[in-house]
Amino acid sequence: MKRFLKLVLKDLEGSRLPTLFLSGITLVFMAFVRYKVSFGSWHSQMSVLAVALPTAFFPLWLIWRSFQTLRSEWREDTVYTLLALPVPGWQVMLAKLVSLCVEYSVLFAVTVGGTSLFFGGLLDELWSMVSSLSWVVWNGFWVYAAGLAVYSSLIIYIQLAFVVSKMVGKVQGLVALWVWVLASWLADKAAVLLAPLFRWLPTLRLHEFLRLNELDSGIVFEWHPAGQIGLVLATVAFFFLTGYLFEHYVEINE
């Protein structure tokens, strides 16, 4: 555990500067738009831009960071250190996954915090629509958690694609992209093949869980997870496969 934590701390420390930099830029941008809107230079609708721009940019940034955290190990030759460590490959990958999830959480908090801080007034209309603060917190948490789950799987696919591309060693960008396509296809196959095994799972009535009914009694939002179980299992399998390949087959640059 101590070793794993060291790896996490190392990756967190490595991502500290870029995350702080982006968070700072975002908050400054929001404050700037708020200032312009407050003094009438810009139309109040520009406030939407201040929130939408980071929200649209952050996913791209996070995808890039997932790739970059691995790439930099090779570019800066620190992969020598990683490959020489007597730790399972999956721990190295998990440490990167955890630190990227922390990065995601920070950027999520910056978006939510910055929006509340600078554009709280604009939310008045939204507040009147929702039932309570606890409702917002509850559903906000699930939005965060769903985003985290999606992003985590994305990281796993990027890690697998990157590691396999390193094993091939040539035209690595194209190989990584192709591995991504093949891995997604395999996961989809797993989902289709395993779905009948999980038909017995109950349909989840998300509209009740998320209390969407409180917004409008006519909302029905149901999810039958059978089709996604295979996808999740395949993603978990890919994660451990990546760790195994990293530990046993990946090489330094030569």
């Binding site: 190392k10 420390e13 490595g14 500067l17 800066e76 030759d77 620190t78 020598y80 250190t81 020489a84």
Partner: peptide, 13 residues
Amino acid sequence: IAFVPEVDTLYRW
């Protein structure tokens, strides 16, 4: 094994 490679393998930060 304690391996010291020729290249710089230290995290610069």
